[in-house]
Design a protein around this nucleic acid. Sequence first.
DNA 1: CTGAAAGCGCTAACAA
DNA 2: TTGTTAGCGCTTTCAG
Lengths: 349, 349
Amino acid sequence: MDVTGNMDSRKVSIRDVARAAGVSHQTVSRVINGHPRVTPDTRERVQQAVRDLGFRPSRTARALASGQVDAVTVLVSDTTLYGYGAALQGIEEAAREAGFSVGICFLASVAPETLAATVARVGDPSAGALIVVAWDQVGIRALQAVPAGVAVVALSEASALDARCPTIRLDDGAAAAHATRYLLGLGHRTVHHVAIPSSSGRSDRIRGWREALTDAGVPVPEPLHASWTPRSGYEAGRALAADPDVTAILCGNDDLALGVLRALHEAGRRVPEDVSVVGFDDVPQAAYYHPALTTVRQDFTGLGRDSFALLHGLLDPAGPRREPGAARPELIVRESSGPPKRRNTGEQS
Amino acid sequence: MDVTGNMDSRKVSIRDVARAAGVSHQTVSRVINGHPRVTPDTRERVQQAVRDLGFRPSRTARALASGQVDAVTVLVSDTTLYGYGAALQGIEEAAREAGFSVGICFLASVAPETLAATVARVGDPSAGALIVVAWDQVGIRALQAVPAGVAVVALSEASALDARCPTIRLDDGAAAAHATRYLLGLGHRTVHHVAIPSSSGRSDRIRGWREALTDAGVPVPEPLHASWTPRSGYEAGRALAADPDVTAILCGNDDLALGVLRALHEAGRRVPEDVSVVGFDDVPQAAYYHPALTTVRQDFTGLGRDSFALLHGLLDPAGPRREPGAARPELIVRESSGPPKRRNTGEQS
DNA sequence: CTGAAAGCGCTAACAA
DNA sequence: TTGTTAGCGCTTTCAG
């Protein structure tokens, strides 16, 4: 017995409540599920008994009997990366508000050869629905490994090939183009790009950047393909720093930009006087980098919320629809970008 | 029917398999659970049927019948903070290896008044065991709200009062003391401290720092109490930058250190020439800050793994014991720390 | 509006 | 070694 004088609460079942309230266990079920046609009096008696006994319905039993689970598990490669972590947070919030429990599986730590088996296990129909963050290759592969018959929603790049499931798309092509035009507008002759890995081989960010360059009729340098880490940004940055023609760099994320910043500094190239650097994502630290990073803010949390709303709508078509609410990408101008020091007077072509 | 020619796999039950294999459903249960006393022949027939029908056991039904769940849910305030995210990742890895599914609940987005209810809901005994990351106030409060009768393990600060549940303790008091002595050893007259919020009011980091100072017989400045964000580090840093006596600052985490770095820079105080800065945690970005941050590396992932191992041992005392494997905190010296520029020759006391 | 019966898919005792 | 009989705690159907 505990403080409230009851027996251990883990053993009270719907029948115990029924007995205490002098009704059938069925009536108890109706009351706890908010069934409309119950006499106020009966309802009150039952609720009293529920309180007295500290009854908590078993989600497991409910799931088994009804075949519905109210659970979603999120497949995501690595929440240490800001965008992924924020998206997860958005999903979890929305799911919790809807009374769903949320499970998680980090794909990054799954051996490639066991990926399919792992996905099959966590994607068990009896474990509820799935949301897979497919912004990278692992995510895409996980998506393909999802067993048929499971409700699933994906978060993907806009350019990702065909979606065989409902999808929330992150269109940062437009944002990349916008950032590129901003840099061009500052007077740079072209903009170099350090790219994050793409899920599809044709990343939106690369595409947007390239289009902006092409539209402006300026040369399109070869993009540098990096990973997600500051270290790989640093390596790309060293290469770029050695080229005096480089005056503006658009980075695929803020971590990359951080590495680029450092490489530039070590090479004696000042930012933004000699080189402008623009990041992507707007991590909470970006405003405190040295110099403070100009970057494209993205609403990952909103995307996460939207993906859950989409899933919820799928699962319960009768339920209230929620309009997508994710904010559009937004360029945040800080210290790391500015006009090139010496304007070229346009000699060649 | 799908590619393999079977009916929809979500509806095959243990009895279907039994029928196909010509045995009782109980035998099927034995086979899928690896029960030893089954004739190899029978076992083979059953396994064949399982394959043919694409049978997947229902975790829900299994949980309901056996009373065991093989699931753990993690209560954590905000995985956007590196240490929390890494710990979660460690827990998830270890749990998945053990065949557990892992759920998650972000405390930061739970309204304080609904915290207890939320914890009670996700901490439902039928939802499995709990690991709560109690490195902060919300975590502690969540821990207290855990209903009796649920298996729970906590991750807490070493100084946290009494633990009413098995606990993995993070002792960064020693690490803070070590970092402080390192700074003192460099010749600084004292070390200032910008503190993260503590779960207990008596943070280990503060204690270790204070002890090192006291042991060395140097003055103990009042610690500055900040939050977790670069911004709050920045604010503390501005105050510190204005004080010419400040030559060494130990920060409660790397984000704080980043903010401090920036404040110092804006104030024209050079790092490490004028002021040394040491952080805590060693986030992946720390080596790329400007200057590269000296910091105390912590093995959060290992802590996470250990906490799951502890829980697993609790749940299954017969199972294999796993020794705690988390690495001890380690000081990583980089560019942000060094000897003070002008040695004081010890005029005033 | 309420109750009785049946069963969700599985495991746990027994018995054979 | 295998099969039979009972449930786990709840929802669902159908009577009353």
